[in-house]
Design a protein around this nucleic acid. Structure first.
Lengths: 108, 108
DNA sequence: AATATATTTCGTATTTTTGCGAAATATGAA
DNA sequence: TTCATATTTCGCAAAAATACGAAATATATT
């Protein structure tokens, strides 16, 4: 038996996903990608008030967290959601938010 | 009419919540608080492998994001979830994750 | 008032994040 | 091969996050 870990892999994984979503631009991108299958970096760059290199970094971070993936469609790159991890994130966040905390008078 | 904002208040708010959840210790705390109504900082400090001052900072951050609130119960402090904002977070994350992205062959 | 307990704030150091423009890379078209 | 387009990486700077121990604060108890 392993020693009881307080901080589990799920905690770590959820924190990683949450951190990746911890910037409005990245929330915007994930929202977009979860509604319309894919998009090009250029389309985002036109809408968003940030430099292309900055956008690129945000995309990189989402990719590092496993939330998106890119496929070359020269000369562009098509970005899509990583369905498997998105579902994992859906499950983990869903778990966290599933239980409505009980009302507690001491805490007004 | 205001100019169409790309990054909305909801994006900002969700990012703020996500950022607050972007650390395993804070995920652990919120998970705990969403299951059992309240807890004391000391109880957390005993379980978690971090200094009390570090824990205090994490709690402060969760409080700043509006996810928890503390009430003095001297000499301890009882921390509880902020139900209103937790529900807001539940709604915002729920919205983000509600739509399962369509399968897309180009993105294997 | 003095003591003990619980927690936070302060000061500091290190690491990470965020952002930009310039330069580099990759690829299709001429 | 050269040119044009799309995107990323690099180099830098500024800001924020993370962590710790020591000191400060707050409050109940003696």
């Amino acid at each position: 038996m392993l020693p009881e870990e307080i901080l589990t892999n799920d905690h770590e994984q959820l924190a990683r996903f949450a951190k990746a979503l911890g910037h409005p631009v990245r929330v915007y991108i994930m929202e977009l990608l979860s509604n319309q299958t894919c998009c090009f970096s250029g389309d985002l760059a036109e809408d968003l008030p940030i430099a292309r290199s900055t956008l690129s970094q945000h995309l990189k971070e989402l990719k590092a967290a496993g939330l998106i993936q890119g496929t070359i469609e020269a000369p562009k790159i098509r970005y899509c959601i990583n369905r498997e991890n998105w579902e994992k994130a859906t499950r983990l966040f869903g778990q966290l938010f599933q239980s409505t905390p009980k009302i507690n008078d001491e805490c007004k």
